[in-house]
Design a binder for these strands. Structure first.
Lengths: 192, 192
DNA sequence: CGCACATATTGACATCGTTCATATTCCGTG
DNA sequence: CACGGAATATGAACGATGTCAATATGTGCG
């Protein structure tokens, strides 16, 4: 009798609420019951839409990945054009965006790339952030802006370094400026 | 009346038990009560030695970090000598050891570098794996084996790339061979 | 021996994820 | 429009968990 039986969009509402909770408190320290209570819904209502608490978190993770992807897309859009300079700016911007996302949304970042979401989320094969990186690198390569023979395995290095530096920054093992060091070193080592 | 009051070394025993539990099931999915039960001890006995469940996990994390450090030390010992070849082998070996540790003990790796253990564990300043990496890089540098101007920020890149690739491998986002790509690319980009 | 301290226990509390039986609402079919 | 089934929500309950307060039990020192 709580005003609105059949919420109509409980699934979406729960994901949104869970998204906020994750952003604020981290994926651990999030309770289904609290989310249900915030939505004026019984604790067990969620189980009509999600099999599991983890299923809710995976949905949140998808939102997080989408946010990261959108952020990277915005960077690409901010540096359009066919010039070498633009290509360089796109590449550097992608790395910066990746790290900036992690710094601004550490809990979301941890969830997206954590054990819970390790599923069909973002593999090298699927679309999203990874292909944007690959495209940016290919662009640099075809422009002859890469050091000779540097292209091989460079996606792994760049993604790995971005991801690792981002992780180490948000855990406090590296200072925020470490992101700049990544860009600078990439410039020095792989570009010309 | 459970046989042995005053366990005598409950703290160490709990850490050891927790270490096994973490290795097997991950830091989440580990319960203090289960650990206590395995040690034939009441659930609240732990609170004489640890303020928190997290305190136990931090202790486990310290063991994990020590294990990583020992592993890296073993690599250094396996490639002694003053030759350039040995210096190269030490550097490559450290990276390989870091990733191998993550692959063989993913749950431990996640705990060590996860939010719970983000404390005085392993900052760039403190001893351990990071200084071993710095020393190896300095060694390469003084030998003139580094590309000109490459030393600046290279610790961040190498640690970041190792850490990121390790993380992405154990979450299934990169194949195990990505570790080799790291070594190869470093060889190609920063060494001569 | 006796006393103080460290250590462990018992019992309880609040919270959590999850399930089951039940109730309510919605919607398409007759 | 009526009705019945499907979708959705509820309530109560279970077992498990982290944690605390009060209590009991060892241990070692005077």
């Amino acid at each position: 009798m709580s005003r609105s039986y059949h919420h109509g969009a409980l699934a979406e509402a729960m994901v949104e609420q869970a998204l906020n909770a994750v952003r604020e408190h981290g994926a651990d320290h999030v309770s289904l019951r609290a989310i249900a209570q915030a939505l004026d819904v019984s604790p067990s209502a969620a189980y009509n839409h999600f099999s599991d608490k983890d299923a809710v978190l995976v949905a949140v993770g998808r939102c997080g990945l989408a946010a990261l992807d959108e952020r990277m897309a915005r960077v690409l859009a901010a540096h359009p054009g066919d010039s070498d300079e633009a290509a360089r700016a796109r590449f550097a911007g992608l790395g910066r965006a990746y790290i900036a996302f992690a710094v601004e949304e550490p809990n979301l970042f941890r969830l997206v790339f954590g054990p819970i979401c390790a599923e069909a989320d973002m593999g090298p094969e699927s679309s999203g952030p990874y292909v944007k990186l690959v495209d940016a690198l290919d662009d640099l390569d075809t422009r002859g802006l890469l050091v000779a023979g540097a292209r091989d395995g460079l996606d792994v290095i760049v993604w790995g370094a971005s991801h690792g530096i981002a992780s180490l920054i948000i855990e406090g093992y590296l200072p925020r400026e470490a992101g700049d060091a990544l860009i600078a070193s990439m410039d020095r080592l792989a570009l010309r």
